[in-house]
């Protein structure tokens, strides 16, 4: 008996008898007349657009400078009543310089979901952010840790540097590496499953706080 693979491919090819043989490149490429961005904003205006769109989907947005970041993060954790925070191993040490009396869980392959389930907050950076859609993208790269770090705790604080903000999806994709596992986050966990009305907060973090740091990175 031939394999399912061979049978499926044979059926597909038979179904496409009307298509002249040859590689896909023999067909004209798909048209791409859409915009590469819907905003011309740059600089502070782009950051403002990101903040507006994040807030529209119920993320809490803070704007600060590099110098004030440690103080702000300490305030956010305090205001949330957090007693423990999970962080990636390569978190810039100065971020938590003003945070005291807080249990820190450092991400490592041995850290379990069960352990993270008992942590109040997670603090990470990101790979980039998309202003138009109010999206932050994590790719397990620098200052981000593994995917579960930002998933299991109920409170996620994400720090974005100004130079990480892309205007739009078409401008963001070329900056991302497809081989890395990615999580795109637009606001806290939500559902529309009850009468198609949006309710925030199901399985992912119910509180998402985004800190946009303006000025050059340190």
């Amino acid at each position: 008996m031939t394999s399912a693979r061979d049978r499926i491919l044979a059926k597909v090819r038979a179904a496409l008898a009307d298509v002249p043989p040859g590689p896909p490149d023999a067909d004209p490429p798909a048209t791409r007349a859409y915009r590469t961005a819907h905003t011309e904003a740059t600089g502070p205006a782009l950051l403002a657009l990101l903040a507006e769109n994040l807030a529209d989907y119920r993320a809490v947005v803070h704007q600060t400078t590099s110098a004030r970041l440690p103080e702000l993060l300490a305030e956010i954790l305090r205001a949330h009543g957090s007693r423990s925070v999970a962080v990636p191993a390569d978190l810039p040490p100065e971020w938590l310089a003003a945070t005291h009396d807080m249990t820190r869980l450092i991400d490592s392959p041995d850290l379990t979901a069960e352990q993270l389930n008992g942590v109040d907050s997670a603090l990470t950076g990101c790979a980039l952010a998309i202003a138009e859609t109010g999206t932050i993208v994590l790719d397990a790269g620098p200052a981000q840790g593994r995917r579960m770090l930002t998933l299991v705790p109920d409170h996620h604080i994400c720090v974005i540097r100004a130079d990480q903000v892309a205007a739009s999806l078409p401008q963001a994709l070329p900056r991302l590496d497809p081989t890395r596992p990615q999580t795109w986050i637009s606001g806290p966990s939500a559902t529309s499953d009850i009468e198609l009305e949006r309710v925030e907060g199901v399985h992912g973090p119910r509180r998402l706080e985004v800190v946009v740091v303006s000025g050059r990175p340190q």
Binding site: T135, P181, W184, S186, S189
Partner: peptide, 21 residues
């Protein structure tokens, strides 16, 4: 679909990643 600019979560993965997922 949900009438959102972007849905809250999109996961993208390529094969497996050591010690993540």
């Amino acid at each position: 679909s949900t009438a959102e600019r972007m849905n809250p979560y999109t996961s993208l993965w390529t094969g497996t990643t050591p010690s993540d997922g």
